[in-house]
Design a protein around this nucleic acid. Structure first.
Length: 152
DNA sequence: GCCAACGTTGGC
DNA sequence: GCCAACGTTGGC
């Protein structure tokens, strides 16, 4: 079964254009348990909305897919990394990454405001107040609606 | 740059 | 286990 997700990234740190250039990466640096647990539920072939947060304007900009399921985030073991976690060990890793691959960049950005204004997306986690999750599930219908909004 | 909404930490 | 203090996220 295919699941649908939304991954947030700050474009000043890593944008959809970086994603397009690199083609496939592991999604490093998630340090929130809820987001981590969603990543652990990702399966190969799941579809991902790529979202620009802290941007002007914030919004969905493209599509990716899961190509490798959860494995330990190597950054947690690296003292030089800003994602280093002294409480993590090889025996007991705390944090997880998944590998994603670029699928497409939207013709146009689908802004957060547009998504809030679309009645079909009223139940979407993203548009609900106080949602700061950087990895979150999306329904099939919501995913397809956002894809449609990103065309033309 | 501000600040609301959370999540995490650590003293007790 | 409570909760105050602190840190982070992310829209505006």
């Amino acid at each position: 079964m295919v699941n649908y997700w939304l991954f947030k990234s700050e474009p000043s740190v890593y944008s959809i254009d970086d994603m397009k250039r690199d083609n496939a990466i592991y999604w490093e640096g998630i340090r929130n348990y809820q987001a981590r647990n969603f990543m652990r539920a990702c399966t190969v072939g799941d579809r991902v909305l790529f979202y620009h947060s802290n941007a002007k304007p914030p919004g969905a900009v493209g599509e990716c897919k899961i190509v490798k399921e959860a494995w330990p985030d190597p950054e947690q073991f690296n003292p030089e990394s800003k994602y280093f976690d002294p409480k993590a060990s090889f025996e007991k890793p705390r944090w997880t990454v998944v590998d994603i691959e670029f699928v497409s960049k939207f013709d146009r950005l689908v802004s957060l405001q547009e998504m809030k204004e679309n009645a079909k997306l009223a139940e979407m986690k993203l548009v609900q107040k106080g949602c700061r999750l950087s990895v979150m599930p999306v329904s099939k219908e919501e995913f397809e609606e956002v894809l449609l909004m990103g065309k033309e």
